[in-house]
């Protein structure tokens, strides 16, 4: 079965979906912001750890898509790792609930320097719709130094990729 599939793929060419148009101006702006924030050079391969600080799981769904064959994150020298101890970048989602606050801080502390924090999604940027709730600690920026924000509710994989690519380019320096 698989072999038949492989043969048909070879005959019909790659099964990729066309890339979504990216906002080039935004990419450049992000890259410039990052160059200032990230002076030290890490090398080409960035290890990313995703931390859910209280999201609705919408942001996670789109982050997961980066691993799919359509976006294939690893070709940019970016990969997700299982432990913060192996990570260079923390992707933090959610308005950061009071119940997750300590876990988010401990994950940050467990990540070796130098490290970058990316706040993903409107919730992570300013609490989003959950702003002002008794159960919310505050945006990611109120507890961690944020190097990059990716807007959207949720941001699309193309927007995420755009942000991460900017991070990579700034660090290849």
């Amino acid at each position: 079965m698989v072999w038949r599939r492989v043969v048909s793929t070879l005959r019909h060419g790659p099964a990729s979906l066309p890339a979504e148009p990216l906002d080039e101006a935004a990419t450049r702006a992000l890259a410039e912001r990052l160059e200032a924030a990230a002076q030290r050079r890490l090398g080409r391969s960035l290890a990313i750890r995703q931390v859910d600080g209280g999201s609705c799981n919408g942001c996670e769904l789109e982050i997961q898509m980066l691993n799919s064959i359509v976006y294939d994150l690893e070709r940019f020298g970016l990969r997700f790792v299982a432990s913060p101890r192996h990570a260079d970048v923390l992707l933090v989602t959610g308005p950061v609930t009071r119940n997750m606050h300590e876990a988010v801080l401990r994950t940050y502390d467990a990540t070796p320097d130098p490290k970058w924090v990316v706040a993903v999604g409107d919730c992570a940027i300013d609490g989003g719709v959950f702003k002002g709730s008794y159960a919310i600690s505050g945006a990611v920026g109120t507890m961690l130094p944020v190097d990059l924000v990716v807007r959207g509710c949720p941001p699309s994989p193309a927007q995420l990729l755009n942000g991460l690519r900017a991070l990579l380019e700034a660090n290849a320096g």
Binding site: D52, G54, S55, G94, P95, T97, N99, M100, A103, V129, F130, G132, S133, Y134, A135, I136
Partner: peptide, 11 residues
């Protein structure tokens, strides 16, 4: 569970 409690009903 409970880590993601956002106070949604109250909001």
């Amino acid at each position: 569970l409970g880590w993601l409690h956002k106070g949604t009903l109250g909001l």
